[in-house]
Design a protein around this nucleic acid. Sequence first.
DNA 1: TTGTATGCGTTATCAT
DNA 2: ATGATAACGCATACAA
Lengths: 340, 340
Amino acid sequence: MGVTIKKIAELCGVSRGTVDRVLNNRGNVKKETEEKVLRIAKQLNYTPNMAAKTLAARRKNITIGIVLPAEGNDFFDDLLKGVYQAQKELGDYGISLIVKTSKGYDVEAQLENIDSIADKISALIIDPISDIKVEQRINRLIENGIPVSTVNTDIEGSKRLFYVGSNYTKGGETACGMLALITGGKANIGILSASGKHGGHIRRINGFKKVCQEKYPDFNVLAYATTNDDEIQAYEVTKNMLREHTEIDALYIAGSGVYGACRAVIALGRDKNFNVICFDRVPGTIEMIEKGLIKATICQQPYTQGNRSVHFMFNYLVSGAKPEKIQYIVKNEIRIAENI
Amino acid sequence: MGVTIKKIAELCGVSRGTVDRVLNNRGNVKKETEEKVLRIAKQLNYTPNMAAKTLAARRKNITIGIVLPAEGNDFFDDLLKGVYQAQKELGDYGISLIVKTSKGYDVEAQLENIDSIADKISALIIDPISDIKVEQRINRLIENGIPVSTVNTDIEGSKRLFYVGSNYTKGGETACGMLALITGGKANIGILSASGKHGGHIRRINGFKKVCQEKYPDFNVLAYATTNDDEIQAYEVTKNMLREHTEIDALYIAGSGVYGACRAVIALGRDKNFNVICFDRVPGTIEMIEKGLIKATICQQPYTQGNRSVHFMFNYLVSGAKPEKIQYIVKNEIRIAENI
DNA sequence: TTGTATGCGTTATCAT
DNA sequence: ATGATAACGCATACAA
């Protein structure tokens, strides 16, 4: 049945220790021996037994650090649930977690979070703010032998091990498709996002506009505004936008501030025959879906993102093998009133 | 850190063997000893280490049987992918699978499938045809000590260990919600299903009608027809239905036969301003979504169903513990052209 | 009724 | 450069 190190050792006429050294690149092996072991291992299609690896790894003391710009953003509640569930599922091993959160897009706060745990962790999972300083800090960790993965937001230029998150462009395309189905492809649209700098939001808007151009000539984007992901600000800018453009009958909201924007629509008495499409499944959004103002919200499986991140990182630490895919892309889920 | 049998044994002043006997109800233990061990174990919140269990269980020879009415139904392709992926993921253990498929709703064929593997398997995963004979056969297996779980379709009255599948009622509600968003809550609807006997389809239709009544007074269901999940038959009955009811401008298809029905709509030249909502993501459906006739399809994560079923059953066989939840309900996913 | 020894596959340590 | 051995937590066959 299963091919084991023991079997390989017997066939090669060496000890298990030597096979282990070869298979895990620990050095101190004669070249010929190494080649022979590798050949036989490949021939027998050896795959290590994770159960045994996990069991044996139990003496190590793994601590995974988790850094998130979570404060004031309900999206991360679910992500963290997935993280803690993963910790439970990996209870056989007994990993520790250190979770550090900061507010919004405060670069310095995130850097401080990283530094405060850097010497305590075996690995880091981070939702990075798109800033060169953060990228440099990540790269430095990696050079010091601490593997880093990104979650929810990627920094493609960095040396991070892997990314777990959504395809923002496709999310924008899906949002556009939904709005088209609902409106029959005819709408005057206002767009909101956090700022012009948030990479994910930019891609969501680009995806949206791409589908507009290709398939829906009667979609008119009349105005943009930025909310800084703040509810109050969202309320204000939406009010101004709607006053200025009385033809607008649909909002596409790429970031948070959804609840504030919806309240503005209602405050102006424009919520009849008005459609809102947004992202994420947070309490304020659920309320507005039940009210019927938001017709659909696109979700990126925050629970799965948190859960998979921890599992992948654990596997890497135990097995030393990177996940085959450098990116684990979660689905864009459409939620409406009936399946919210 | 982790609480182990060894630790409990030390604290109780007994041997590891005795603790094992208590924790696994193997008998032959003095009452007082048993109570003490149980008390300490609970106190320390002992949870067995799955990695160790899996490793130790490797000498057993587990074979899981899988019986599906899969022939002629592409839905099961993805379900089986999930099954085989689970086998890979559990490769450390080396379980064997025996997959048996039959066609449509052929009760005798399914019974034969069960019988042909009954003496070779340690457990059975089955998508059961709703028939008293199948239920009885399942119950008999269980009485003979072979655990059985249901997938995709449940038999609630039976003694099956657990169910992995969708909430059909909610699927129907979601379908209705989507159709309402697309049509503005105004449509003349024809409904198709496999037969009046398929429990899942009945619930999908009931869920749909419930939402109709509660929220969409301008949804008129004008006709029903049955397709026997056959494309040719679907084509014919749809043609007849549409000829008879020229006002129909939407189809709600609870089962398969989707492609045939769509071809009928096109053959009659009715595909302009016509909306189809259906279930599952199979090649014919994808084609019709791209054509724009089907506006949305509701998916029940077939891959996940297959994958989880095998994992749960494996866990049960190894640990002897039932999953906490008797039902693992997958999500109803909405797919449209942009996220198909 | 209870205890002991051995093995599952891998890794780490110590000895050679 | 290589081999031998103990340990990870659990299950089980055997001994007492």
